[in-house]
Design a protein around this nucleic acid. Sequence first.
RNA 1: GGCGCUAUGGUGCAACGGUUAGCACGUGGCCCUUUCAAGGCCAAAAUGCGGGUUCGAUUCCCGCUAGCGCUACCA
Length: 510
Amino acid sequence: MGRFSSREIPTERMATTSNALGIPLGGVRVRFAPSPTGYLHVGGARTALFNWLFARRQGGTLILRVEDTDLERNRPELVEGILDGLRWLGVDWDEGPYFQSQRLDLHRAAAEKLLASGAAYLCYCPPEKYAGGDAVEETEDAKKEAGPRRVTRCACRTGKPAPSNQKPAIRFRVPLDATTRFNDAVFGPHEVANEEIEDFVLLRSPKEDQGHGAPTYQLSVVVDDIDMRITHVIRGSDHISNTPKQVLLYRAMRAAPPVFAHVPLILGADRTRLSKRHGATSVGSYRDEGFLPEAFRNFLALLGWSPGDDTEFLRTSELVSRFSLEGVSRNNGVFDRAKLEWYNTQYLQKLPIDDLLPAVQGELERAKLWQPEWAAAKREWFSKTVDLLRPRTRLLPDFSTWARAFFSDSFDYDPRACEKFWKDERLGGMLDKLADGLALLPDWNHDGCDHVLRELAAAEGVKAGLLINAARVAIVGQAVAPPLFETMVVLGQERVVSRLRRAVKALAAR
RNA sequence: GGCGCUAUGGUGCAACGGUUAGCACGUGGCCCUUUCAAGGCCAAAAUGCGGGUUCGAUUCCCGCUAGCGCUACCA
């Protein structure tokens, strides 16, 4: 894929205007700006991750800014969930969270200033005239019949007489007969004729009882990005079409635009934009399902970014050291859950055991199976047991469900396991004898257990596999488990013998 | 409809004018085996279409097609 040289954007570029926050000048400054209208979805999470990686790589600053200027849809209670999601992902921020809703005066002042300088004008049109939602039914047919839709350029622009009872909005006066350009760090040069850009609203017309209107997104982002001295705007490519408007605003405010870097969108399996009907789309749901953050982060980083070669496992430090905007793809990518699961199984197996233990502890605590001594006196045992179990796990909850018998004496026999391995009627007697033999073992170890079982199998004239599989069901209740003798060692002699006796009774009762 | 962006197997990426188009997930098969995973090996599977430019196009240019985004007094 050809990359033109125009993509080489100076990363040291920065705004130099003063700001209201008293932040020292200099260095890369990026921001993640979620709006609390929903949970943290995977697309937003990846944008946050890319911002974080870029900031860390450049030794810069990551700012968290909550864009809650949508009075109707904003849900303050969702903010904490978004922050939790970011923390889980390992994305930490250096400043904020700032809330745009607390900066409205700054935004309004900017609009007034633009108005005073002539870069904006008062628009007395009733909101419904241009609002798409309620006024016009936007069916497919209606769209086609509508023909070429004109860019908003109302009479107010040239100062038509104002109706007395209508409170005005402030619109930006797009300079005509010009072209607006910017150089996207991912998508390359981009330009659009100003005729195509509407005179967008900066300040909404005031509601009934209010003295002044609310700023719109376009105004707020630019004002805040200038004020916070953002040097690189890394965000979803759905914002590409908005960017020329913002570039125009930067000019009107006499501020240097930041570097824009748009990252491709994440799509569902049907190649449409990820939404609720695609099932799990919030990072919280993946955390709750028992994915490891390390795996999720690795997977997410490689969706729409590549280090340039075929590397597929990157630790956080490698992600940071290898991340660059040049490696970001321009193609929208499909969220592939199967691959995420693969990453998770890989991390469950490869993570240093000490890094995995806390996650397993958390899972056992959730399941009310946790014993504090496993983190203290019996830590060694816990570590060994988890290590034995992990090659067969896919998600964290496997430790408390499938592997329950390793952490509790209260477990059920899986009916399918019984069906498969407890068929032979002689098993009751044989397991009883196995318990006898194991109970007499002076040294409880792998080879001792192995020897007892194989001797018994030979004496009974059956294949060792018959006893092995039956005994596995007896002591852990599952058809699938780690190798039997290692399992026995970890569970201990007393427990194994008593579980065999219990199985003998269960078998007899059938 | 208008404007914009994108186009390598089913999926995610690599190949930056010259490769038998590479890797990984997934899929199928084989090996290993004490169940099931893991692991190893093998296989099927891609440059959307049409024109240029060039000694040579996956790669550069144009058109078409398709997909996506924007087209709000949402963000």
